[in-house]
Design a protein around this nucleic acid. Sequence first.
DNA 1: TTGAAAGCGCTAACAA
DNA 2: TTGTTAGCGCTTTCAA
Lengths: 373, 373
Amino acid sequence: MTAAGKHQVSRTETPRRGSRPGRAGIRDVAAAAGVSITTVSDALNGKGRLPDATRSHVREVADRLGYRPSAAARTLRTGKSGLIGLTVTTYGDEPFTFTEFAYFAEMARAATSAALARGYALVILPASSRHSPFDVWQNVALDGTVVIDPSDDDQVVTELMRQGLPVVSDGRPSGDLPVTAWVDNDHEAAVLELLDHLADAGARRIGLLTGTTTDTYTRLSTTAYLRWCERVGQDPVYESYPAHDPCAGAVAADRLLARPDRPDAVYGLFDPNGTDLLAAARRYGLRVPEDLLLVCCSESTVYASTEPPITTLSLKPRRIGTAVVQLLIDAIEGLNTGQPVEQVIPTELIIRTSSQRRPPRTTVSAPRSPSGD
Amino acid sequence: MTAAGKHQVSRTETPRRGSRPGRAGIRDVAAAAGVSITTVSDALNGKGRLPDATRSHVREVADRLGYRPSAAARTLRTGKSGLIGLTVTTYGDEPFTFTEFAYFAEMARAATSAALARGYALVILPASSRHSPFDVWQNVALDGTVVIDPSDDDQVVTELMRQGLPVVSDGRPSGDLPVTAWVDNDHEAAVLELLDHLADAGARRIGLLTGTTTDTYTRLSTTAYLRWCERVGQDPVYESYPAHDPCAGAVAADRLLARPDRPDAVYGLFDPNGTDLLAAARRYGLRVPEDLLLVCCSESTVYASTEPPITTLSLKPRRIGTAVVQLLIDAIEGLNTGQPVEQVIPTELIIRTSSQRRPPRTTVSAPRSPSGD
DNA sequence: TTGAAAGCGCTAACAA
DNA sequence: TTGTTAGCGCTTTCAA
């Protein structure tokens, strides 16, 4: 063993003051291995040009001492934490709403595994930040952040970008909010395709169940619907409701089917609309798909086994979550060219019974009363 | 402005070497405010006994400079990161499975908001850890960790506890795995209550759809079922399948209803079993609840609007997620007494049409008193 | 091939 | 009331 005595470490047995109790530090390993802390660092991180003997010896000693490098120290020194933020809108106490739930869960799941695969971990953070020292945002060292549907003047995004941290958004940013990159679907194209599909299945008057919120998804989808109506010369038939209220959807579905100009096909923009509409149809004695064609935007697999199975539009949250994280990590690691990157993920229309009318026979019948069968 | 010149900071305009570009550090704020860095730290953190004038002046300057304290440095110094790990079992590429999905999502959601409310953020981490420097676990400074259903000899848990970090588990630890605290349901009591409910509704032969895995939940629930059968003198009728395989459930449901000793009531242990069983019943021309009573363990709201609505057992993942995080943070902050803490969360049987053979009233009566109606 | 030394940016004793 | 100073544990030039 080479001259352990010449190193800067405790030749005495008393641990340095302030040292964390019980846990071995890099100095302890160096002392025990009879090398310098530099050598320990290099050996453990696969750097430097050490002989294999030294390397394995150091590793062995570190192992024996149960040495775990301090992530905080490494982060402070290198400026990289390996942590990626994922913002989550909170409504009252709960992060994200019932409506966004399946989408978000799938997206987060994909994002998590994509991040882990590249050696990063996801930190869940609220979409807004108070300007106080107790704010979580202040306490976490992030290499970059994924944001979901940032608003026009999102303060968190603005601040992060100002700090020089990359921000990638799920959903194209509205206004002139600067982001490093974004990923989104082509919502307009998706709606147009879907409406054409319903028309092909025999729909004469297609209704829309939409939201009162002004987020990009709702806005683009509704606009596309209105444009389509204009193009084919149909009067728009739609009902709006606050999508974050889990009860309001059922009421709105009912309202839509109770109208004198009742549609013979409906597209629901939000995940629970399928079951809501199905239940409403049942109340009015409408058979699906014979009397009413149904499509909703959803990521839930339950629509494969409802009675009847319901056609859904999937926004492919898994692909979005993966893409968002890849773009972010590329930006963190300086792998992309520097100009804003935009990525459009295709949607998928999963056609099931509810949007396929059997032999196109009956014309639209007159509205029935809620009780009638 | 008081003697700025006497401070140790750059009276020259050149930033210190190595300083992060563009971002103001505590020294810059101190210099600009004409105070020492200690005063800046104290002013910003509400510590020390500074006059309000100094405090607000410093805050103003910090604000003007866009000063953001370095989380890494603070963590290194204080030993607290404000970060809590949440482990997630990965199957292949994807974190958590379809089966656990709704439960996990709800639990994680509650855990996230509970953590945020106390100033902590959740970091999603894989349930296993390679022993390599590229392992995510090595790169994140955690104050403590929540683990879901740790196995008998969970290496990650063992290692964390050895490091002196608190670990709270969702699901009682099996074997003699040491954890700081755990939260769980009383799975046996829940199953017994549910079987009694089915028997009260007229079930003569209750079947079970269970898993082939050996996790605690599956094991305890199955054991409870077998014990109940023995007590009432019924032959057990059950089918097992690998619960993480999304397709296997439907097959097993079919198998169960195809048996010569076909049950007249079934309890499914996993979330998708409800729709699987409903579909299987339809295939065999069995009416629910007339010919077949159905209950499954699920957190999904879709069972409220299936045809017919299906009775579910909820494990209350929200309450579990909240409890787990509270216990963990209490442990981190040294608020609890030191001995192991165990917390049992009651389950909830949500009674719907599928398990009520008697007059279809919507009123939910106590499971044990069928005579009242 | 290895080691010494200089910090990363902050907080908290201890001085003044 | 405020400032000086000594590190937290690591990585990284630079020197030997």
